[in-house]
């Protein structure tokens, strides 16, 4: 479960003090999916960055973010157990598919266990036998599916989706979107999606960020 309490984010760089998010309160239970919608620049991606811990020092925030009852605001990005998907798949180009998937897996697992999980997930995503495929040979849809698998295999406690369907073509988007929502739900992980495309908001509660902040 992820809980956001009275979260406000300010932008301080270079010498401004602009409010990006004010008094945000959210509570997302396990397997719950919410979509945050709003126009560009309303602060929805900044909110995700605040949860992930990737906000730069140009920003400062007040309030609290808790995952499973523990505050994460003072934790560095790598200690937050948050998974994130961006518009680009961001697969590491010097690694093949298998190496990309193994990268995020927990260290205590044996190599055999890791490979078993990798193969199992590849078959779920209809990508069997692509373990050794080079990243540059993947289609956009394949790369996006592998990006989600990589995130899931790292066992995050919450998944953040920053317009992950924006760069896919319409036909692919419809199929992939459904697959992503179903797969995340099946893992019992809370997820937050931000988008400015209303067609992406087909799952769970939808929050219109601008109105939400003003209210």
């Amino acid at each position: 479960m992820i809980e956001i309490n009275n979260l406000s984010i300010y932008y301080n760089y270079p010498k401004q003090n602009k409010v990006l998010c004010e008094e945000v309160n959210l509570c997302i239970q396990k397997s719950e999916f919410i979509t945050i919608m709003g126009p560009s620049g309303c602060g929805k991606t900044t909110l995700l960055s605040a949860i992930a811990g990737s906000l730069s020092t140009a920003f400062c925030l007040t309030g609290d973010i808790q995952i499973d009852g523990k505050s994460i605001v003072d934790l560095p990005i790598e200690k937050r157990s948050v998974g994130m998907m961006f518009q680009e798949a961001l697969l590491f180009p010097h690694m093949n598919v298998e190496e990309n998937l193994l990268f995020g897996m927990q260290a205590h697992l044996s190599k055999k266990e890791k490979l078993e999980q990798v193969n199992q997930w590849l078959s779920i995503a209809n990508l069997e036998g692509m373990n050794q495929a080079h990243i540059s040979t993947l289609s956009g849809g394949q790369a996006s599916r592998i990006a989600l698998l990589r995130t899931l295999l790292s066992k995050p406690k919450v998944i953040l989706l920053d317009e992950p369907f924006a760069k896919l073509d319409e036909h692919l988007k419809v199929k992939f979107r459904r697959w992503v929502f179903d797969t995340i739900k099946s893992q019992n992980i809370p997820a937050i999606q931000v988008t400015h495309n209303s067609q992406d908001a087909i799952e769970g509660e939808v929050i219109h960020f601008e109105q939400y902040q003003k209210s």
Partner: peptide
Amino acid sequence: FNHRYVVQALLLSHSYWKALFKIKLPM
């Protein structure tokens, strides 16, 4: 360098040094 790769590597690897030595520097 695209900072999002670093963010992604940090989120996945849970280690700054792993993200630096296995992702950023090799890239």
